[in-house]
Amino acid sequence: MGSSIRWKTTLPLAILCAFLLLFPKLVGSYFLHLAVSGILAMILASSWDILARTGQVSVGQAGLFGIGAYSSALLYQRYALPPVLGMLAGALIATFVSIFLGYLTLRLRGIYFSITTIAFAEALTVIWLMTPDITGGAMGVSTPPLFGGDREKAYYLILAILAAVVAVVWLIEQSRLNFAFTAIRENEDVANVLGINPTKYKVLAFMISAFFTGFAGGFYSHYNTYIIPYEVFNLGVSIACLVMPIFGGLYTIAGPILGTVLIKAIEEYLRVTFSYGHQIAYGLILVLVVLFMPEGLLGLWRGKILPLFRSRPGR
């Protein structure tokens, strides 16, 4: 019994892993590029979801993403720090910033946190534009292509990071953290009275989220070879981080990843159709999901579609 259930989950998973590992051998450069940016977005989506598990909505992930991106690019430019170490440094700096920001705002009720995170990303844009000597200003910073432009290597690196995020989320789900995060999200006052220090766990979730978001930023700067403040600190990045998991299904491993695949596809289509405003889909999806499918695609699947299949044998 037990082993047959095991097989049902591990076999598709093994096939998926094999497919992902062999992917660069199967496709051309364009699709490889799409895969890299898709996986990058999955990392952002899953990282956002980690924080969301404590009931906090960050609308400023772009701030952490940009900090990671700039830290890594500037450390390369000034001190010739190797890109992968730079990404790690970017991740750590973003984590450090999240501790500071988290302790200031996460002891407050959620709405203050959300507003502060927007302000944080926007404030960074202003700081970056106004201090060109340190940050490169509006002209941005450029770096040589990652791994000498070898997309396959870049693909495996970003895939490894995604695997790390998934592993961390899985570990959280298996541990006592899952109970703390869920309790805080569902009722902070009750969690508090049951011995859970809400601020501590919220900050911890924010740190984990910031680490991977910062790492993704560092990767982006080297992969893209060129970053400007308007792009990496952009509201659109922050919105993308939250729309993808909300669409796919919150507080799950598969939800953010599934949401990213679909939204990236829609976005790619709209990008061709409209030169501006392709993020209209983000807004529309947010509104529709909140109104009609609050548990996202996974919730729809579990609640409406799966039962259709299950009821068949009984009829």
Partner: peptide, 10 residues
């Protein structure tokens, strides 16, 4: 929050 943010982006 998410709904009004969605409206805003839209």
């Amino acid at each position: 929050l998410l709904l009004t943010l969605g409206l805003s982006i839209f």
